[in-house]
Structure formats: structure tokens, C-alpha cells
Design a protein around this nucleic acid. Structure first.
Lengths: 361, 361
DNA sequence: ACCGCCAACCTAATCGTTTAGGTAAGGTGA
DNA sequence: TCACCTTACCTAAACGATTAGGTTGGCGGT
């Protein structure tokens, strides 16, 4: 049946296009009776407004985008849940831009997605990775606010919600030291995901304090690469690590596959701890001790912050002031993490974290 | 800096808006020299085309939407990967519409998302669940083609890529019979996901042939509900099942949590098999025997089919023929599944499936 | 010199909404 | 009666791109 427009509703009801528009979008200037008549006709004809035309004419946008790299990391699922919860779906549309192909970050794809977001004049962006400087600049030029989650670009004034990775990693390291481990192997993703910095520095400090030896092994951010990297490392190095620290979920998965294949027992032969809680963590063999970022809380806060920035921006624009988003110092927040002690680190079960007690399943 | 338009580029270069448009979109009628000049100016000024205006004017759309319910099911991640692979990202944009809130299907959200897809005049839809009839009708009215994956609506003429769930389930059942299990418990999600039908009928037939007793326990499609439902069932029923068949991943997760808590040993006290492969399946305690749907292949095929339908539709429209999509019998395809035998069913490792041999990790 | 053709470019209409700026009818108060 | 509101509605001008249908100027062929 194709192309039904307001003009068709206008003809069907005898009202002008203006009145139809007002009736459908809920503005005033239309009597209750006429509105009902128009809504009924639109419903019957199956009319749906053309968003391209609407957005072209309207000033304010209502779509925010979440930029991630590799949604296979279950961390992102919780993040998204938090974001969705903070943005009323009847008022906002959330879209996801995944800048990874086959699970691996792709620079050209990042460029295309940023381009695409500007093309559709997105109201705001939540980014789970450090974007390339030219892209943050381009978004800034178009007055599109960005909130970074668990990452923040070098240009330091951008809003961000990050986990306090340094302190959390320090806590992890202290726990490992208590177990008596001296040789630590940190299997980690590249610095594009800037949570790397805090995690590494915290572990370094803990290792220094405990007199342990920390080896950092960098790998691409997917399970297969992690497995290969770890295999080569174990083959090449003389000493075997006492404990393996997996930088995130895909890396843990790759490492666990290798350890199982090589019949390396956990934690007897090598202890394991990992970053980021995941659904199956308590049901693996053995259950995995995990540093739990509150990614849902991170998502919730990021979305609320972004919403606030957008609203303030719109208000300023109405008043004829600058239309660029205003970033304030309080737009940089940190949320604490908790350590979930399970079998893989050498513990039995039940545990301390930031002062709170956690039972494992 | 706000609102940069083609007119600005036009003023900056001295060319008309027409020439700027042609230069940027790669059409002819522009000399190579002028084009370079225009591209350079656009680049320097940071101009990005306004997609709303572009889509309003243009006939053809280039966005396809994937409708899912609860992306926490890792099945969807593979599905998405397959879809992405089949749709060249420089030509197509793929968006995800998740019709679940907090992991549970939400009817009102489905209505909103369908509305939203029509508003933006989406080129086509891939749906992972049976949509409400009024919604398939509305999409049909707007000539938006739909391909269903692992589900198909009652109106039977729609394109669909489904796993051959009946035959696959029959295979599962036969395997369970070989282990000698007589009491089967099928923990399963509602029929809104229509893969339920084939899975249940295959198990029923297998149970009949083997003289086993099949109990079907329906639960909402998330881990927490599954856990509660299973707990009540085990408490209430006199006989304990020999084997638990989990209808999908979240249900398996819920069930495994309960079995571990109650110290029910797998497979000694109760065997477990599940539908849908997942990343951690070989690393749980014990490794889980799984019926592996080739969800990436399903996604790939669905995307290719949808693309074909859209292209045919556009061609017909150019010729002035009907603009509604043409659905053919060959648009209904089935892909086979494979059974991945691991420890949880009572096997040791390594296995048959559809004639192919599979090693478990 | 003349004609025709092509490349390169322009003007202006158009897509489907929203909205600024009207108007006409009816009510109200002095 | 008149001036003045208010309500309910309309006309017409945007929004920023694409594109049908011109208009040039230059070149080649005869």
C-alpha cells in the first residue's frame, strides 16, 4: 500500500495537514473531538509518521548511541541493561554501534560508525572505548555530547564513569599475596580500552608492595588470540606463573580452554583470577574468582549523566546561548568494584570486598 | 559550531548545491578537479551529510533491523555475527531492536519497536521471535519484508530460516534412550518462540519410540524463573527425573545453579542436556552436552535472503510494478543441527551428530 | 562557418513533516 | 455597540538534501 502521508489523513478527515500534525503529536490547538476523529482515521488507515521528515524539521533529537567493541563480552550486556533502565524507552531510542568485526576492534569501522552517528544527528553518545582523537573532535564539532564508560580519552575534560580500577586491582593483588603467590602473569588487552591503565598500575603497586614478580602479557581482545598468546608464553618462559590474572572475559575463556587442554589444574598447578563478573562464573570448573565491576550501575549512571547534559544543552540553545555541551568536573565519576572470591584463586568460598561480605553460589 | 549544510560547502567553494551533492555522493556530472576541491572543503569544514534530509528525498532505504527478545542469550551473539557478515557494513546499517525489559519479553515494547521501525522506513526486518499478528500485518502494509529466524508466525507464507528442531530433538531423545534414561524432564520457554514446537514434538516422538516418560515444564524465558520453576517441580513431584533437558541457555543456567546448590551430581544423580551451544559449555562442571544450532549460519542465510528480497522489491518498484515484497516457497529453509556430546549426558567425550564426528574440548 | 553533441554546471521542484503567523467565529465586559 | 480575547483552525514557509530538466561553452566533423 506504500507511502501514506499526513496529507492522506488530511483528505480522509477533511482537516488540514496542520491539524493532523497537531492531533497526532499531542500539541494543543485541536479540539478533543477533532483529535479523536483524526486518531481514529490514522489508526484505521495504518498511518505511521515519517521520522526522516520529522527529524529534518524538528530541532531536538531523541536517539542516543552506545559505542562498544565486541558485544560478546558479557560485561556489555549488563552495561546495556543499566543504560536502558535509565532512559525511558518511550522518550529515547538507544542504538548500539559495535566497532568490532569478528570480535576484534576495527579502526575503519569506528570511522564509519562515528560518521553514521553524525549523519543521523544523534543526540548523544556513550562510548565504552577510547575513541580516536579525530573522532572525539568531530563529534565535539557537531556539538554531540559524549560520556565515556570504563575508558576515557587523553583529552581529559570529557565526562566519564569508570570503575576505580587502580584500587580494585590493588585489592586483587593483596589477596594474591596473601595466598603466597610470587609469580604473577597478567594476560591483558591493548590500551585502546583505557581501563587497562588502572588495572595494570594497581597490580604493579601490589606486586611491588608484596615483593612479587608481575609479567604483563598483551594480546588482542578475543578468546582465540588470548589462547595462542598464552600458549606461546608458557612454552617460551622458564618459570611457570603461580597465578594467572585474566584481563577480561574473552581472555579468561581463551586461557581456561588452554589450561584444560594442557591438564593444568586450577588452583593447584596455577591459580586463576579474572576481571568482570559473568553468568557462568560460579558454575565453571572450578568456580572463578572475579573482580566484579558494577557494569549495570556504570551504565545507569552514564545514561543519566548524558541525559542531563543533553537537556542542559537544549535549554541553553533555546535561550540562544552556545549550543556546545557543557562538561563539568562532577561529570567524572568512579564507582567501586568488589572481589568475588570463589575456588579458582585458592580460596574455598565466601569473601571480603571493599568491606562487604559476598557468598559465592 | 552546529548546523553545517551543503549550502555552506556551496558558498565556500563557489559551486552550486547540486554540484556539491553530486561530488559528495559520487555521481557523475562533476569534473575530477571540482570534485576534489569540494571533497577537500567538506573535509576541512567537517561537513557530514544530514541523513534525515537524504532519506526523506531518496526512495531506497539501507537499514535493516534485527528484532530479538533478551540479547543475554548468547545464541543471539552468533546470530548477529552471521548477519553482520552477510551485509556489507558500507552499504547496510544493521540495528537491533530488543523487545525485552530486564530479560523478559514485553508486549508493549514490541509495539513500540515495530512502530519505530516503520517510522524510520526500515528496508527490512529479521525477527528472532514470532511477532504479534497485528505487527506482521502492519509491517506488511508498509511493504517492509520480514525474515523470521528460528521462529515463524502462524501466517505461514513468511520467509523463515529455522533449525530442523523436530529431527534434532528426535536425535537428542534417541541418545538419551541409549543411555537408558526413562524419566525425562523438559524445562522449556513459552511458545512465543516458536522453536518450542519442533523441539517439543521431536522429544515427544523420541519418548514414545523409546517408551520413556516425558514431562514438559514451562517457565518464563530467564534464568531466575527457570530456577524457581525447577525447584518447585522437584519439590512437588514424587519421582526424580533421570535427565533434565534445558530448552535454551538462560534456562540451563538457572537449572545448573539450582542443581549445584542442592548438591545434585551431574550426571550421576541427574543427567543434563541443553539446546544452543555457548562459549563456556566445555568449561563448566561437568562440560555440558549441547544441541548446537548453527546460529551464525542461520543469521548469514537470513541476511542474504532478506537482501535478495529487498533488491527484488526495489527492482519491481522501478519498473512500476507492485511494491510489496514477493515471498516464494524457497524462502522457507531449514538448517540441520549437531549434537555436541560432552560429560553432562553421561558420555565421556567425542561424538556423532547427523553423521559427523565431533570432539569436545 | 555551421551544426550537433557532450561535459560541466545550474535552477527549481520535491520529499513529508513542523511551525510562524495568520483568520474567522464566538464569547465577554464596559 | 465596540474592542479585545480565546479557541480552533488554516496557509505557507521552512528543514537539507536529491534530481528532472535546463543552459552554457568548447570541441570535432563537414
Amino acid at each position: 500500500m506504500a507511502r501514506l502521508t499526513m496529507r492522506d489523513i488530511s483528505h480522509a478527515t477533511g482537516f488540514s495537514v496542520f491539524t493532523v500534525s497537531r492531533a497526532l503529536s499531542g500539541g494543543d490547538g485541536v479540539s478533543e473531538q477533532s483529535r479523536e476523529q483524526i486518531l481514529k482515521a490514522a489508526q484505521e488507515l495504518g498511518y505511521v509518521v515519517n521520522r526522516a521528515a520529522q527529524e529534518l524539521r524538528r530541532a531536538n533529537r531523541d536517539t542516543v548511541a552506545v559505542v562498544t567493541a565486541g558485544t560478546s563480552n558479557s560485561y556489555y550486556l549488563d552495561l546495556m541493561a543499566g543504560i536502558q533502565r535509565a532512559l525511558d524507552p518511550s522518550a529515547w531510542t538507544v542504538i548500539i554501534g559495535d566497532v568490532a568485526v569478528d570480535g576484534a576492534y576495527d579502526a575503519r569501522l569506528e570511522a564509519r560508525i562515528v560518521q553514521r552517528l553524525i549523519e543521523s544527528r544523534t543526540a548523544g553518545v556513550i562510548s565504552a572505548l577510547t575513541l580516536q582523537p579525530e573522532h572525539t573532535e568531530l563529534l565535539a564539532k557537531w556539538d554531540i555530547p559524549i560520556v565515556f564508560v570504563d575508558s576515557s580519552p587523553e583529552a581529559a575534560h570529557f565526562p566519564s564513569i569508570t570503575t576505580n580500577n587502580h584500587d580494585a586491582s590493588l585489592m586483587v593483588g593483596q589477596h594474591l599475596a596473601e595466598h603466597g603467590y610470587r609469580e604473577w602473569l597478567f594476560l591483558v588487552y591493548p590500551t585502546k580500552w583505557s581501563s587497562r591503565f588502572g588495572r595494570e598500575s594497581g597490580l604493579r603497586e601490589a606486586a611491588r608492595l608484596a615483593g612479587a614478580n608481575l609479567v604483563v602479557l598483551e594480546t588482542a581482545n578475543d578468546a582465540a588470540s588470548a589462547r595462542t598468546a598464552l600458549a606461546h608464553h608458557l612454552d617460551d618462559s622458564a618459570t611457570s606463573p603461580h597465578v594467572l590474572i585474566a584481563g577480561n572475559n574473552p581472555l579468561l575463556l581463551g586461557a581456561m580452554g588452554l589450561l584444560r587442554q594442557r591438564m593444568i589444574r586450577i588452583p593447584e598447578d596455577m591459580a586463576v583470577v579474572a576481571y568482570d563478573e559473568f553468568a557462568w562464573s560460579a558454575l565453571t570448573d572450578p568456580p572463578i574468582t572475579v573482580l566484579n565491576e558494577h557494569s549495570e550501575e556504570v551504565g545507569r549512571r552514564a545514561a543519566m549523566m548524558l541525559r542531563g547534559i543533553i537537556e542542559e544543552q537544549e535549554e541553553a540553545q533555546r535561550k540562544g546561548q552556545s549550543s556546545s555541551p557543557r562538561y563539568l568536573p562532577e561529570h567524572q565519576q568512579q564507582v567501586p568494584a568488589r572481589l568475588m572470591l570463589r575456588g579458582s584463586c585458592g580460596c574455598a568460598a565466601g569473601s571480603v570486598l571493599d568491606g562487604a561480605l559476598v557468598k559465592s553460589a
